[in-house]
Design a protein around this nucleic acid. Sequence first.
DNA 1: GACTTACGATACGAGACCGTCTCGTATTGG
DNA 2: CCAATACGAGACGGTCTCGTATCGTAAGTC
Lengths: 202, 202
Amino acid sequence: MTAPESSAPRLRGRPRSPATDAAIIEAALRLLEEGASVGGLSIEGIAREAGVGKATVYRRWPGKDALMLDVLRSLEEPSPEPAGVSVRDDLVTILEFMRRRGLAKRNSALLRSVITQMHAHKELWRAYDENVIAARRASLRAVLRRGRESGEIRADVDLELLADLFTGPMLARAMLHEWKELPEGLAERIVDTVLAGVSPRR
Amino acid sequence: MTAPESSAPRLRGRPRSPATDAAIIEAALRLLEEGASVGGLSIEGIAREAGVGKATVYRRWPGKDALMLDVLRSLEEPSPEPAGVSVRDDLVTILEFMRRRGLAKRNSALLRSVITQMHAHKELWRAYDENVIAARRASLRAVLRRGRESGEIRADVDLELLADLFTGPMLARAMLHEWKELPEGLAERIVDTVLAGVSPRR
DNA sequence: GACTTACGATACGAGACCGTCTCGTATTGG
DNA sequence: CCAATACGAGACGGTCTCGTATCGTAAGTC
């Protein structure tokens, strides 16, 4: 399942150990867990971590990319089984799955590695955070607070959550889809939809 | 403004060229624009791109991290000037600023570089997308469609946007705050808030 | 038992960057 | 003119990883 053994079952000689296959992939995951970025991983390092010769890795995969592909495949999950009764509950199920997945370190290794790479340059990120994000975040929070006082926004919603509610969709668009696809009216659509809610008004 | 020249204005000898300062930072930004990751940048490469000797770089900054810090500082922006009348319009202003910033390549260089690093491993990302994201996305879309047919969700909202509305906040939480902070009831809170909207029900 | 392949270890040459240093030249103040 | 510093270029020794090759040994098939 992990190594691409394909069609030729030559059964002469010593067979490749499946345990070694697993050890290599495990080692890669372990390194990712520990904060390595995908780009920072080296075959050499993985082999070392796995207690395996480099040649043993190269015997199975032609290069890092192919290996990473199998590492990702090893993370396939049973999927969240969305079947339910109320749409609301189904949505909760899906998001809850996302949340758990985020918490489970070894899963979502790729996305996590991207974020880790961010937090890896701690100083850098802090500077970026202070210079760019914090300012925007503060002004956003001010607007939200004002809206709450003026009655334009419900009082029972956490401001912190509220901020993510508005900025999150934009971020998701930028990250998961192509970066370019931030169409003209997007800001209005997000704001109005979040304000109004998506269940039908009475 | 860019290089930290501090307090000692020794005026003997040839002074450092501010143009060179700028050229180095420009080169770094150019490389980031072209898809290099922060981790992948090398002083050697930056100097080459800038048409500058390595020593000239090391004369100004002690290492890559310090240089990157100044590169970030060079991106500081006038901030979105949120002052407005209606909270709704202010929110649109802020999000619109985010959107434009996302489109302006050279700004948001850091965040962009993180994302670029993702898309850099095209094959890898595609695999990850197909294996992990697409499946979840499909089931999410199915639920949303079902909700729309059953009347639990308004019919006039784009399904694509809807999906981002639900998943975005979770992603924002994971990325911008610390990864661990995905508290227990978050999924329910997001779903219920997006469904109900944040403006007061009548 | 003979043959074949996998294995861990390690050597190898190639190449990228690192950070330091030294050229010869340019540009300033004294 | 002279001393001091900056400049582009690049040599230098060092580290790291690459992908290949070669050991002697282990583990299977015929």
